[in-house]
């Protein structure tokens, strides 16, 4: 496979993994546009082993999609020799550099903030009812932070592909 074909493959992978990942955030906003605190009754119905396995699978898919999307994006920049310039927000690489920093922050949010709390909310890790309800507020804020960050993320991905049109 030549370099151009591999770059195309990476870009395609980046889009698909990104849609799986951020699509989950958008789906959550559409299902629950406004915050309504959970109650014990809300959490009581999802304890069957089958439902737990479904939740685990779904969460795993989008969590690992974040790693695939981030890795494909970083590898694309590295292969082009653009990674140092993007990291330094240098000239025409500044827009995609901003996108990369936002994407990195979002992946860290998924793994370090959302996941540890979501495990308790979903019942994948043992926790008291009070603790699960407390964690559901944190997962809401964490998920919405990524939804909010996806707006500039997609803008800077698009801007970066158009030759850094923001830069004079």
């Amino acid at each position: 496979m030549d370099g151009f074909a591999f770059d195309l493959l990476l870009r395609w992978t980046h889009f698909i993994a990104g849609i799986i990942w951020v699509g989950h955030n958008y789906s959550s906003v559409i299902q629950r546009p406004s915050w309504r605190p959970l109650t014990g009754a809300d959490l009581g119905n999802d304890q069957s082993a089958r439902f737990q396995a479904l939740l685990n699978r779904e969460h795993g898919f989008f969590r690992w999609a974040s790693v695939v999307a981030w890795s494909a994006g970083t590898l694309m920049l590295w292969r082009r020799g653009s990674l140092p310039g993007a990291l330094a927000l240098d000239g025409a690489l500044a827009p995609i550099g901003v996108g990369m920093y936002i994407g990195t922050l979002m992946m860290a949010n998924v793994w370090l903030v959302l996941w540890p709390h979501q495990q308790k909310v979903l019942g994948l890790k043992p926790a008291t009812l009070e603790e699960r309800l407390r964690c559901s507020r944190i997962t809401h804020l964490s998920s919405r932070t990524n939804t909010m960050l996806s707006v500039p993320l997609l803008f800077f991905m698009a801007a970066g592909a158009h030759g850094g049109m923001l830069v004079r």
Partner: peptide, 30 residues
């Protein structure tokens, strides 16, 4: 008053504001 993230509109509005602020910064500094 609740958190801006507590509504879909608040979340999107914050995203748009951040996009504008970052785009202006890139235009000024990069």
């Amino acid at each position: 008053m609740g958190h801006p993230y507590d509504t879909a509109a608040g979340t999107v509005l914050l995203g748009l504001l951040l996009t504008g602020a970052l785009a202006a910064l890139v235009r000024l500094l990069a």
